[in-house]
Design a protein around this nucleic acid. Structure first.
Lengths: 313, 313
DNA sequence: ATCATTGCATATCTATAGCATATGGAATTC
DNA sequence: GAATTCCATATGCTATAGATATGCAATGAT
């Protein structure tokens, strides 16, 4: 059976044109090298070298073989390096899903940017999908990890980490009467919104921010007037800007300086909170996924609100 | 040191997802396979497989490695095949030179056609060059073999085979007075051309057909009137067609049914003969060159005028 | 629970084969 | 013709790939 040793030997002999010198360079004696070359030739059924009085020279077959052997040896080195890079999470594929409302959180954007910078060989795939779809794709193997806003009760074969809880802000149209008497730095009770119309982002499947908002209002003693439901988190902002009502969105959405809207805070103990989770398929704790996990953990710590309670589901 | 064995084992284990079954397929027992996989992982410094209770599954590093390993194994097979093909002369490169007057000989055209048909992977390079230039290119390694009309006295490191001697024919312009009294099937003595003007193909360097013609005329008792010299064998035909004189060309040139000229034979014992030689660089008796040599030999025999006297120069 | 089964890991041993040492032989050089 | 060069052959040793036997952890059946 042909082994890489044979290729290494043949290449060196071809380069040196001299079995004895090649043996020296390979760190062995001349007889075993002669033997291995001969064994290779026997295996191939073709002479690779002409034995001259003053050394050897590759035959046509030898040239053809050595030429390819060089490429193969380089490929082997490449494969070794690729495996090591993949082990460090710097090579391979990583498909990340995220819900629309997570896309704007600095944790997510920072982690993605860092991955791009520090592991350029890693093929990153980013896919926007709601939490339920992300979990489905995860278990189907289409995603390796996902940032989601909600966790269903039980999902086998999926691990999750609660990253942080984010305050939600009130989004109000520029010319809304509420704004006139609401200074930018004032925190009001949720009940202040009891009479206004709400625009909410409603996912078709599974619990999410929608429920958190309803529950908070309920706790504050009123049931919100829901005027319209959007299917995309960003569209709620457009609808608010159009003056159709107010909404509640995670604080990180305020980064989007959309014109025509203003953000106001609620009293901290009354404001519903928007959790951010990272979910992933277990069983692949090394490689790209491991790198993502450590990067996320580091950035979460840097944001100062690490909770870090992993949970198996 | 990593060997192909490791690649073969890793690929099979990845395919089976099962060390025991993979061992079976590889024709060995499970423990040694486990060991080899482990040795490979140690060498790489990265785990390639997750050991589950129900078999194994490739890690990210394992996937990256196995993917490339498959390609490498295929390349090795390719290299083996390429070497064997090259040994049979069906792969590789073969640069053949030929003088202008040899290009039309059926031996040359047939051999080239056969090479193209029977060894499609062989990269054939055909280059027209005069005999002296061919020999130079041969020794410089730019050509592997050449068909030439003349051999210089001594050339080190070049082998030659005399393939055949070809009768030379008289080429006469359509309306030349000589033609009127010369039936197509009549052989005339060379002296019949004593008074006509000759157009000859004259190589700047080395002996060739030119000298053979002069010598033949000399022997026939006259010195030819050389009206014009052409530097290309084919241009002599054009000049003859233009009525500028007659010429003597190898019989194989008559295949070119140029209009405006006629061919006539001389008495066999008086007609100068045009030899055809094959020259090549020795030391590469296998592979494409060997194939050329055998093909040439076979076709020469088929033409019924084999001489086959090799000579070292 | 307990026991059987599955499947990888570890331990020990054997045998193959890759390598070293010693020598031979053919071509080349002085 | 002696010396040199360099590959091939012969023989012995050693390292290691592989075989056998067993252990161990996880899963499944009774």
């Amino acid at each position: 059976m042909i082994e890489l040793r044979h290729l290494r030997y043949a290449v060196t002999v071809a380069e040196e044109g001299h079995i004895t010198r090649a043996a020296e360079r390979l760190g062995l004696q001349q007889p075993p090298l002669s033997q291995q070359i001969k064994a290779l030739e026997t295996q191939l059924g073709v002479a690779l070298f002409h034995r001259l009085s003053r050394g050897v020279v590759a035959t046509a077959a030898g040239k053809a073989f050595v030429e390819r052997a060089r490429g193969i040896l380089a490929d082997v080195d490449g494969a070794v390096e690729a495996a090591r890079r993949a082990g460090r999470g710097e090579d391979g594929r990583l498909a990340i899903g995220f819900t629309g409302s997570a896309a704007f959180h600095p944790l997510v954007t920072d982690v993605v940017r860092e991955l791009r910078d520090s592991a350029p060989m890693l093929a990153l795939t980013l896919e926007e999908a709601n939490s339920a779809a992300s979990l489905e794709a995860l278990r189907a193997g289409k995603l390796d990890a996902a940032f989601v806003r909600a966790l269903p009760e039980a999902h086998e074969g999926v691990r999750a980490r609660h990253l942080l809880d984010e305050e939600m802000l009130v989004v109000i149209p520029d010319r809304h009467p509420l704004l006139e008497s609401w200074p930018e730095d004032e925190c009001r009770p949720l009940a202040a919104l009891a009479e206004t119309v709400f625009i909410l982002y409603h996912r078709p499947s599974g619990p999410g921010l929608y429920d958190a908002i309803i529950a908070a209002c309920d706790k504050a003693g009123f049931s919100p007037h829901v005027g319209q439901e959007a299917t995309q988190m960003i569209s709620t902002l457009s609808l608010v800007a159009a003056g159709l009502g107010v909404s509640l969105v995670p604080a990180s959405m305020a980064r989007l300086g959309t014109t025509g809207i203003a953000y106001r805070r609620l009293k901290p103990d009354e404001a519903p909170s928007a959790p951010l989770f990272l979910v992933w398929r277990p069983g692949e704790e090394s490689g790209p996924l491991a790198r993502l996990l450590t990067d996320v953990r580091r950035h979460t710590l840097a944001l100062g609100s690490m909770r870090g309670d992993d949970q198996k589901m």
